[in-house]
Design a protein around this nucleic acid. Structure first.
Lengths: 147, 147
DNA sequence: TATTGTTATACTCTATAACTATA
DNA sequence: TATAGTTATAGAGTATAACAATA
C-alpha cells in the first residue's frame, strides 16, 4: 500500500491493530467525556450495574487492572453518587459495590452513546464484517501464546 | 460468550480490539527486548533502514509521535552505533538519519523475529483470515471519523 | 497465613511549551 | 515568519510494595 511512507511496517498485523485502536479510542474518549467518564470508569460502572454487589478485588480482576488503581476510580464514582460501597454480611473486609439509581441511568445513557460511537467508527464495515472482526479478534486474545 | 464474567463489555468491538492488542503487544515487547528494542525504537530503526537520510521531523510524522519524544530515542540508537546523524547539504537545520551497518543487521534480525512473533501470536488464524483481519482493520483506521 | 481495601510511590508514555539555529 | 532539533516539564496510565483490618 504506502510502503514508501511507512517503510513496510504496515505489513504487520499488530501495526494495523494499534492504528485502528487509536482511532477507536480517540472517538470513544470524546463520547465518554460528555458523561464525565473515561473508558475504564465506564467499564467499571457498567460491570457494577450488571453485577451488583461485586467486590473491588473481583472488579479489578474482571477489568484486568490492579486493585490499587481501582480505589480512586471507585471514589470518583461514589462521590458522584453513581455507586455506593456497602458492607458485606459475613466478611467485613469486603465492600459490595452497589449501583445507585443515577449510576444505572448514566450507564444506560452512556451505553447507548457507546453503541452509537461503534456504529459511527465501524461504519465502513458491514454488520457481517463487524461480526467477522470480533470473531477474529477473540480468537487472538483467547489463544494461549506462551507456556 | 461470558456475559456474566465481563458483564457484556465483550460485545463491543473496541473491547476485543484492545484485549487482542494487549496480547500482541506483550509478546512483541518480549521479542524486541532481546534486541534491546521497544516497539517504537524498532519502528524507528526499520524506517531509517528503509528510508535512509530521513529527517527527525519526517520520521516523527511517519511514526505519529512528537518530534520532541524522538530525540532521546535517536540518541539511544546513535549511542549504540545503529544510526548516525549526518549533516544535510543545503539545510543546516536538518540531520539526515543514516543507518549504520550494525543498524541494518539488527533491523533485519529483529524483523525476522517480529515475523516469527506474528506467526506465533496469530497462529489461531489461517493466512486468509490474517489477510482479512488486516483488511478490516485498515478500513477502520483509513476511515475519517469526524469532520 | 492469606485476602481486602488502601496509601504511597515509581516508572513509562505522551503532550506541550519554549528555546536555538537556521531558513 | 516558519521550520528542525532540542530541552524541560507535566499529565496520564500503570505497576509494585507495604500496611491495617479481617479472615
Amino acid at each position: 500500500m504506502n510502503d514508501n511512507l511507512d517503510a513496510g511496517v504496515s505489513q504487520f498485523i499488530g501495526y494495523n491493530m494499534k492504528r485502528a485502536l487509536t482511532v477507536v479510542q480517540a472517538d470513544l474518549a470524546q463520547v465518554l467525556a460528555e458523561f464525565g467518564l473515561r473508558a475504564v470508569s465506564y467499564s467499571a460502572l457498567l460491570v457494577i450495574v450488571r453485577t451488583p454487589g461485586i467486590s473491588q478485588s473481583d472488579l479489578a480482576d474482571v477489568l484486568r487492572i490492579e486493585k490499587s488503581n481501582l480505589v480512586q476510580l471507585i471514589d470518583e464514582l461514589a462521590n458522584r453518587g453513581l455507586v455506593t460501597r456497602e458492607p458485606v454480611p459475613g466478611d467485613r473486609r469486603r465492600h459490595a459495590l452497589i449501583p445507585a439509581k443515577a449510576g444505572i441511568a448514566l450507564a444506560e445513557a452512556a451505553t447507548r452513546a457507546v453503541q452509537a460511537h461503534e456504529d459511527r467508527v465501524f461504519a465502513a464495515l458491514s454488520m457481517l464484517e463487524r461480526a467477522t472482526l470480533v470473531h477474529l479478534l477473540r480468537r487472538v486474545w483467547a489463544m494461549p501464546v506462551r507456556a
